[in-house]
Write a protein that binds this DNA or RNA. Structure first.
Lengths: 126, 126
DNA sequence: CAACTGTATTAATACGTTTAATACAGTTAT
DNA sequence: ATAACTGTATTAAACGTATTAATACAGTTG
């Protein structure tokens, strides 16, 4: 479920945060479903529990999960999460598109990529 | 010309590298034009010359500039630079677009942003 | 020769991440 | 109640990297 990339320069806890955000945004982790415990996930990834602790604390701070002492950590209300993720991504996407234009990339070129991705592209929708 | 963002978590030398790449890719710094000297730029940004030295070394390693002892540092052949920048950006753009689709963002929505940017958008072309 | 250029090197400092080792608090099943 | 889970908090050490500092050397230019 979680894969660490040690060549990635970003800290581990941040990779964990981002990965869980993806899993929640895509619905793989449904609302109120339980995350692995701090200690078990640390064991599984062969890292220190404190690092997972930090990742979970960050996820909770951002409203992605809620934690209950003695019980565990759970996915927060999903609709909000997906909405937030989409907005963040679209904002990033807009920036990058503007940069593309400023670099003189033709409209047709980005158009082709969109067609490619949205026509045949990866996984099916319902 | 160069602005440092100390809230940015990336190292200073990397910000300098990226900023110069932009200036070269957009043609603000034409081929063979001279970059500010290591010491003068360090002075201007109120940072250590070694940091600029590192940024320039990285730019040279990546083929963006060439340096001549006693003379200065200069922008390398520009066509290659712009080509490389475009390819790098398009690759990043494709990835982000795929992520958008996987998050369930509609084709029309990204289409609208493209239209917005490429129709009215920022600066004029020739 | 003076005043610029780039380049190299060594040391010290600072900072953030991660680990380690605990401890405490709440839940659950036996 | 006790063992075995959960989350949470804290302190210290280790480690890597970025940055600064202080030089030194080499080449160019007027």
């Amino acid at each position: 479920m979680i894969i660490l990339d040690y060549r990635d320069r970003r800290p581990i806890y941040e990779q964990v945060v981002e990965r869980f955000q993806e899993l929640m945004a895509t619905g793989v982790l449904p609302q109120n479903s339980q995350l692995p415990s701090v200690r078990s996930l640390a064991m599984e990834l062969s890292i220190n529990p404190n690092t997972i602790q930090r990742a979970y604390a960050e996820l909770e701070r951002q409203g992605y999960i809620y934690s209950v002492k003695g019980k565990g950590s759970f996915v927060a209300e999903n609709s909000r999460i997906q909405d937030r993720e989409r907005k963040a991504l679209l904002s990033e996407w807009r920036e990058l598109t503007q940069k593309a234009r400023s670099l003189g990339i033709e409209r047709q070129q980005v158009q082709d990529i969109i067609d490619e991705i949205y026509d045949e592209g990866g996984d099916k929708h319902d």
